[in-house]
Design a protein around this nucleic acid. Sequence first.
DNA 1: CGTCGTACTTAGTAGCCACCGC
DNA 2: GCGGTGGCTACTAAGTACGACG
Length: 753
Amino acid sequence: MPTKRHYCYCSLWSLFSYFSLVYILYFADSHKHKDKYKDKEHKHKDHKERENSKYGNSDHKEFSEKKHGEKEKERIKHKDGSTDRHREKDKRKEIKPKKEKENGFSSPPRIKSELNNDDVYHSPKSLKRERDHDETEFKPKKIKLENDKVDKKAKKRKQDEDIKPKKTQKNKKGEVADGKKKAKKEPEEKWKWWEEERATDGSKWSFLEHKGPVMAAPYEPLPSNVRFFYDGKQMKLSPEAEEVATFFAKMLDHEYTTKDTFQKNFFKDWRKEMASEEKSKITDLKKCNFNEMGEYFKAQSEARKAMTKDDKLKIKVENERLLQEYGFCIMDNHKERIANFRIEPPGLFRGRGDHPKMGMLKRRIRPEDIIINCSKGSKHPKPPPGTKWKEVRHDNKVTWLVSWTENIQGAIKYIMLNPSSRIKGEKDWQKYETARNLKKCVERLRNQYREDWKSKEMRIRQRAVALYFIDKLALRAGNEKEEGESADTVGCCSLRVEHINLYPEKDGQDFVVEFDFLGKDSIRYYNKVPVEKRVFKNLQLFMENKQPEDDLFDRLNTSILNKHLQELMDDLTAKVFRTYNASITLQQQLKELTSPDENLPAKILSYNRANRAVAILCNHQRAQPKTFEKSMQNLQTKIDAKKDQLSDAKRDVKSAKADLKVRRDEKFKKAVETKKKAVERLEEQLMKLEVQATDREENKQIALGTSKLNYLDPRISVAWCKKWGIPIEKIYNKTQREKFAWAIDMAEDDYEF
DNA sequence: CGTCGTACTTAGTAGCCACCGC
DNA sequence: GCGGTGGCTACTAAGTACGACG
């Protein structure tokens, strides 16, 4: 029911104080690395200053000319982790000889013993990791153990305790987390890939071994007492037809199934699966009665809920076993978690929004549809007995382990690694570095597009106005999409005339543009924005002589825009603006909202408010929680009760005062005082409840998670936590800490985005 | 240039589960 | 113990981007 989404009031102008960025670089007291890094610190300083001062490559070149040890020092681990990786890749062309090691991978190895890093990641010529140079203490690399979830947590904690304090010799209140944890004894050490080299030859890995995907469970035919009726008459379906019928039956009380498109698509695809007699008999969906099937599945899920603890445990154990067996792969000597190791089961396609293909049958994927990607020298995953993979390939220019083509849109689906993996983490880190580069030149670009608003060429004006929107409103790029293949949604470049309204004057503001369109996932974007006069005039121009359904930017698309952006800055694309604006907003908001003397919950509230500002900017919405109304009502009853109490208390005060008037007595005086106190207390409680209510109200349709996970440079949050002594667990849950391990490890309290 | 195929990121939701107050 | 509730994870759809090709 995507239509129940509502408005986004993105009145976040104020968040964009474009000109108010304050760069506070407290170099002097920021070097709190582990002792062993100390000697490098002055270098970091140099480097960082240079980085800030310009934005070309030249500065870096000289570094690479230096010799080993020194070069290395330059590169690694700025206290803020600001190594410019993409820049380096140009310089560091030398390719390391990669070694493939088979290294005792027997079925599901719980522990991967590590090779000496030098063997594996190094070319003699390339830069080295920092650790290498304290050769004495660093030799063969430790054991890697990256499965075992339970231990992992402990491990991480341990690290937090053991390492951070060392690094941050004095660390302010920073380590609240400190004492509180029982130091568990895992000796192993988490792999810090961020302290290592990256490949520069475009290869994504040099060794990859995995067990392949877990296929979807085969279809289990219904018991014979569960019947299907057509036109009132019972009918036994062939297994193929029955399976598809069950997909529908399972969704019976979902709104989807009432939709015309859904029914049509379903029925069409269902008929394709029917045997010919079935096909000739079953011609009208309305005459189909799936109720018994539906009831059956409901009963099943009830039964599942009512299962004994033991049975539930059994399932849990089995899942865990599958996870251990298929949930990990070996990539370049490390055991890494796979994100989605299960093949998507068949079912009915549920598109979002008004999707023309909703209800279509999502086919069962067979081994013959599946492409496996792994190392030549690795133990290849075996297809299920009696089947074959479509192909086994060895492409180390890509990161996926398994792929197949889905039948609805013809899109390719992949099995890839978890966000905590090196391969995802590096990319993520790089993304934020690109956004930080944008920060350095964003003013230049803004001046540029302002100029371009005046261009004689229509395409340039359009490009400039679109870019203005992308920058100011954090709109998505807006690739064009094939009509009829998916829901009608747009982004910036694909905006149509009908999606905006122009008001020369509205609500006391001049030159207001009103946006109203469906964006990704058919989430509505609604916003009224005052714009600069030139933009406004341009928009009028772009809309001249056009129909509502015509493109607003008819001379522009994402590839033109991105090509232009590439010329302005390396690696710059439209989506970088979203990342940049999100992160910079968080940083500013945190600065603004955090007050030093607040207590911990208040600080966390401030963090969430800052986070919320970003979510609003990016229009990250969620469906109102189903229980929202009710829980809100509960809160309201509480508030009402409080109000009653309060007015009672006030009345008490009054009567006490009256009493006091009649008889001036110490006792009555006291009574008045205590009654007054009671009133105050109640007022305070009431206020708290009301704040809570507004808070929840404000958040009801805003999803904070997306921005936290995808747009906010985690180092900003980590730094903020360190600065104010907030335990990181208050901000990031376990998964998030795993994903952002690199940032947690490298960012210090003075990190500046 | 536009189109297509591919790879990878970003997105919201369903449903499970741990925890909380009673 | 119980039911509500909020957090989290798994899932998979829907974006962006880019290179090859004609």
